[in-house]
């Protein structure tokens, strides 16, 4: 239903005040505030441990892999889809690289492998992600399968391939160069964090400043109108899942590099957490809306929260409970805000 012109009197002028009126911006401000609140609460409860540089540093090492998965999830959700295979892709990427290192090193062990093989491993992992995304995109945009079922199925295929490659147990013994990606530091900053920040910058530019990002959001807003406006919907969706796959593979590299191992069932809980962070970060699972900053802020606040819980010796399982409860809480809050806004 069209509103009458009288309703558009609210001025929307550019600049900070105009920006603050946007829904995405409001979500982000709320998220930033909640980050600070969690920080204060945790500091008050366990000041010595929570504020230790060790704590922050460890967060900086394990947060990026989940962050990149969440951004991948957000990209899939932008067009109204979802990617349930990201964890499978991540593990498959890590295992492929690991298998490759094993083959290259032969009996001598992977310790001797230098920069060349590591680069090759990274490329192989990313190509795995790209191909996995291509498969998902093909199923979704060409065969028109619902994203939920398509990625649920391919996710199993990817995990199954992990099992076939490893036979079950974890692959260990990655070369030192690979380890450096997950545990090294660059001018004092953990490498995973550097990678994450770069990914964030690149993706937010891609979404906000390029025709590709705009097209994805338009497809998510009204898929039919996008076709009528001449957007190549199938092609764009295909690309978006390839991008999602690549990002998932990147997370897989970080995960296996940090733990120095790769296994078919690593990071299983990341799937839910990635959905939660994406939704919490202001992504509309029905499509059309999502931004990197929101996802990053949601990631930080939830990481702070669970790290605080861990310090208070709350079991990991209860943290799972908190994540789930948070997701439902966010759904309720969004629904309430929608109703108020309508």
């Amino acid at each position: 239903m069209m509103m009458s012109e009288t309703k558009t009197n609210a001025t929307s002028r550019p600049g900070l005040r105009g920006w603050l009126k946007g829904e995405a911006a409001q979500t982000n401000v709320m998220l930033a505030v909640s980050c600070v609140l969690v920080l204060i609460a945790m500091t008050a409860l366990r000041p010595s441990m929570f504020l230790s540089s060790y704590n922050f540093e460890s967060m900086a090492f394990f947060m990026p892999e989940l962050g990149i998965l969440s951004i991948a999830m957000m990209i899939a959700m932008l067009t109204g889809g979802i990617d349930l295979s990201i964890v499978g892709v991540a593990n498959l990427a890590g295992i492929t690289a690991g298998t490759l290192f094993g083959a290259m090193a032969g009996d001598g062990g992977s310790g001797a492998l230098g920069l060349g093989p590591v680069t090759l491993g990274v490329s192989a992992a990313l190509i795995v992600g790209l191909l996995a995304g291509l498969l998902n995109g093909f199923l979704i945009s060409v065969l028109k399968i619902t994203p939920i079922l398509a990625t649920l199925g391919t996710g199993q295929v990817f995990i199954g391939m992990c099992l076939v490659l490893t036979g079950g147990p974890a692959i260990v013994g990655f070369p030192p160069g690979w380890n450096a990606i997950g545990n090294g530091k660059l001018v004092g900053i953990p490498v995973p964090l550097v990678i994450f920040v770069l990914v964030c910058i690149a993706l937010s530019l891609l979404l906000a400043r390029t025709s590709f990002g705009l097209r994805l959001k338009l497809i998510g807003t009204n898929p039919k109108a996008a076709v009528y406006a001449g957007v190549k919907r199938g092609q764009m969706i295909l690309y978006s899942y390839m991008l999602t796959g690549m990002l998932a593979a990147m997370a897989g590299i970080l995960l296996s590099a940090r733990t120095n191992a790769a296994k078919s069932d690593y990071g299983a809980s990341y799937l839910l957490q990635a959905v939660l962070i994406a939704v919490l970060g202001g992504t509309n699972p029905a499509g059309g809306r999502g931004n990197v900053l929101g996802v990053a802020l949601a990631l930080i606040s939830l990481t702070l929260l669970s790290s605080g819980f861990q310090m208070m010796r709350v079991s990991n399982h209860l943290i799972d409970f908190v994540w789930g409860a948070f997701l439902i809480g966010v759904i309720a809050l969004n629904s309430w805000r929608r109703r108020k806004g309508a």
């Binding site: 705009l214 959001k217 807003t221 009204n222 039919k224 109108a225 996008a226 406006a229 059309g288």
Partner: peptide
């Protein structure tokens, strides 16, 4: 349903 992207700006 076929023309506009209602939640997007006039520019988009």
């Amino acid at each position: 349903s076929e023309g506009l992207f209602l939640t997007r700006s006039i520019r988009d």
